[in-house]
C-alpha cells in the first residue's frame, strides 16, 4: 500500500460526494415509500408496507405493470433481433461501411426522445395507424435498436473472421455457420443488449406519452399520478421501478465491467 496523495484523497472525496448527490434523492423516495404517513415530509414516523399493499390492490397499477412487461418484453425481442441482424449483416457484408453505418445507426440516439415521440405521432396520424401498445412497442424498438446494434458491433470487432471462413471452406452452410459459430460468440452481447433494451423500454416516458392509446405503462401511471395528486403510492411505484432497472442494468454492468477490467489488467 502506498500512501495516497492529498489530491487523490480530494478526488476520492469529490467522487463520494457526487455519488451521494446521485443516490440520495432515490434513497429519499425509497425511505418515504416505507414511511407511515400520507404526506412525504420529515420526520419519518414509522415503518410500514401499506403503500406497497395498496399498490398491490390497485387495479390500475397491476394493469400498467402487465402492460409495461408486455411492452418491454416485445421491445427486447424486436430490438434485439433487428439490432443483431444489422450488426452481423454490416460486419459481414459491408465491412467497409462499418464506421459510417455505425454513426448512422446511432442517429436515433442523437434525437431527443421528445422529437422521436412527436415525429412518430405525426406519422401514425398521417398514415392512420391507431394508437395502442403496439405503436408504443414500435417506438421503443426504435429507441433500443441503436444500443443493440452498437453492442453487437463492438463484440464483432474483436471477432476472428477466419473461424467463419474455415467453416465455409469445410462446406458449412451460411445458416449453419450462423447458428454454430456466430450466435454462440454473440450470446453475451445479445444478453447485455436484451437487458439494456428491457430497461430502456421499462423506464421510457416521452415516446410512450405521445404514442400510447388508452393503455398505460408504469411510467405513465407515475406521470398521471404526479398530475392527479401525489400520494405515497408514487414513492412505492418509483422505488419498484428503480429496483427493477438497477437489478437489470446492474447485472449487465457488473459482468461487462469485470470482464473489461480483467481483460485490461491481463493486457498490461
Amino acid at each position: 500500500m502506498k500512501a495516497h496523495s492529498s489530491s487523490t484523497i480530494l478526488l476520492g472525496l469529490w467522487t463520494a460526494f457526487v455519488l451521494l448527490f446521485l443516490f440520495a434523492p432515490l434513497f429519499l423516495v425509497a425511505v418515504f415509500s416505507f414511511n407511515d404517513s400520507s404526506i412525504s415530509v420529515f420526520p419519518i414516523r414509522a415503518f410500514t408496507l401499506r403503500w406497497y399493499e395498496s399498490l398491490a390492490a390497485n387495479e390500475a397499477f397491476r394493469t400498467a405493470l402487465a402492460n409495461s412487461l408486455i411492452v418491454a418484453g416485445a421491445t427486447v425481442v424486436f430490438a434485439t433481433l433487428l439490432g443483431m441482424a444489422a450488426g452481423v449483416g454490416v460486419h459481414r457484408y459491408v465491412p467497409r461501411l462499418r464506421t459510417a453505418l455505425r454513426s448512422g445507426a446511432s442517429l436515433p440516439m442523437m434525437v431527443p426522445h421528445l422529437i422521436l415521440g412527436i415525429a412518430l405521432l405525426g406519422f401514425y396520424n398521417l398514415v392512420a395507424i391507431d394508437l395502442s401498445l403496439t405503436t408504443v412497442i414500435m417506438g421503443h424498438s426504435v429507441v433500443a435498436f441503436p444500443y443493440v446494434f452498437l453492442i453487437v458491433s463492438a463484440r464483432l470487432v474483436g471477432f476472428d473472421p477466419s473461424l467463419e471462413e474455415a467453416a465455409r471452406d469445410l462446406g458449412a452452410s451460411t445458416a449453419r455457420i450462423f447458428w454454430e459459430i456466430t450466435l454462440p460468440l454473440l450470446a453475451p452481447a445479445i444478453l447485455t443488449a436484451a437487458l439494456i433494451s428491457f430497461t430502456l423500454s421499462f423506464d421510457e416516458v416521452v415516446v410512450t406519452f405521445f404514442t400510447t392509446g388508452t393503455d398505460n405503462t408504469l411510467p405513465m401511471v407515475i406521470w398521471s399520478m404526479l398530475r392527479v395528486g401525489i400520494t405515497p403510492e408514487i414513492n412505492a411505484i418509483a422505488t419498484l421501478t428503480v429496483v427493477v432497472s438497477c437489478a437489470m442494468a446492474g447485472v449487465a454492468e457488473v459482468i461487462i465491467r469485470r470482464s473489461r477490467l480483467t481483460a485490461a489488467k491481463k493486457g498490461e
Binding site: L22, F23, L26, V29, I196, T199, D203, V205, P219, I222, W223, A238, T241, V242, S245, C246, M248, A249
Partner: peptide
C-alpha cells in the same frame, strides 16, 4: 442511475 427512470 443512468439506467433508472428520469421521471422518478
Amino acid at each position: 442511475p443512468l439506467w433508472t427512470s428520469y421521471l422518478v
